[in-house]
Amino acid sequence: MNSLFTPLSWDDTGYILTGIWNTITISVVAIVVGTLLGMVIGFARAESNRAVNVLFGGVLDVLRSVPLIIQLVLFSTFVGAIGYPLDPFVAGSIVLSLYTMAFMSEVFRGGFESVSQSMQTAARSLGMTYWQTIYHIRFPIGLRAVLPSWLGVALSVIKDSALVSVIGYMELLRTSEQLIGRTQQPLTILIGVGIFYFIISYPLSHYGRSLERKMAI
């Protein structure tokens, strides 16, 4: 008997693994790029005056107040419309990185601003140059303070990476959706997918919370 639907089999492992791999790749790219850009912008915002901050803040605000899914569709249609269609991975990485950057910059800004002015003054009075103060005082102390929040943003990026499926990137949820279409076994597949995300996210979020508790004391 030939059926339209075929049950889930071991042959699908490769397909699922591709999805897992793609989810991991795009999350890592977005977290790394978003962290680096966020750190630079966060530092710039902690350093600069009101006018620059309003300008920066406005752009970052848009990135944070428009749903990621809309940003993804807009960006990929836009580059297509101006004649440079991008691969879903590239388009997705760019949007997800900028989105991550918007959240990371706030995290880092808070961290850098938490380093007290008197500590910086003390460092300067010890004869450190401006850059030495940044390198030896502000970065190490500021960055340590943001680790729990950084972890929180990074975890939400891993979860949000599922949305890149909307522009056709074959990440885990999209592969699973296609498998559901073929096998008609939604529950098995979805539970598997849920377990994957849970295994990544649960230990890290616990570590983040314990870190937060340790730092609070």
Binding site: L173, P186, V193
Partner: peptide, 13 residues
């Protein structure tokens, strides 16, 4: 723990 550690899209699916 399930709500916090899985994607929103997963919940909707």
């Amino acid at each position: 723990e399930i709500a916090r550690n899985t994607p929103a899209l997963f919940q909707i699916y």
